[in-house]
Amino acid sequence: MKFFQYGNEGYKSILDPRTKLLLLIVINVVIIGTGFTGTDYVLRVICAVIPFVLFLMIRRFRTALLYALVCGFMLLAERFLFPSTHGVLNLIIVITLGPFSRILVGYAFAYYMMCSTTVSEFVTAMKRMRVPDAISIPLSVMFRFFPTLAEENRAIRDAMRLRGIRLTGKNGGLLRQIEYEVVPLMMSTLRIGDELSAASLTKGLNAGRPRTHICHVKMEIWDWALVLLSLGFLFYMLVLR
């Protein structure tokens, strides 16, 4: 499980979680809302570069390279392939690449957010934003839980393959496949949920006192720069366009 580790070693998270949240929203607004020409396209490229640089900063070189290849291809396709084709060919290209190019950057950034933020930092940032417990606790649990889900799912897939359960064949069928995969996932979800509640009780989440922490959550100069940038983008998207 190298892909989804969210431990604190091996990187220094340079951004505040709040900046990351704002950036996530703005990147998605820009990428989904802009066209492929003129200033719009410049904005798209800038947004696409941000996750790449951030991946490099947390030393995910392989992810960064993969992302750069796919994203570069998408950006070039948007610029040159989409306008230069017509008719059915255009339809096929747009259908296969179009939706993908609209989600890629946002999802890459969401992935970066998951890798680079510890749960503790995330909770602290939410407390600073005065998010009520009813939202912040489930959200941080989810945040922690997605990697676990991926891990469990992989184990279940392995077990299924070991027993020869495939889409086709004797034990095949899509519905049955879904059942075989979802039910164990739900079982382990229940178990992990109980364990998590026990763990949080032990840590005193229920004690009704303010939470203490040692992580460093502060808006630095980088954060302000990126906040300014995203506000500029928002201004462009909402007012100038």
């Binding site: 606790i137 649990v141 989810m142 839980f145 889900l149 979802v182 998590l196 509640s197």
Partner: peptide, 20 residues
Amino acid sequence: KLNTKDLINIGIFTALYFAI
């Protein structure tokens, strides 16, 4: 009133639901 256990349950089930 909702206690921490409930909130954690919400969290994991929302994650499961969303992932699916």
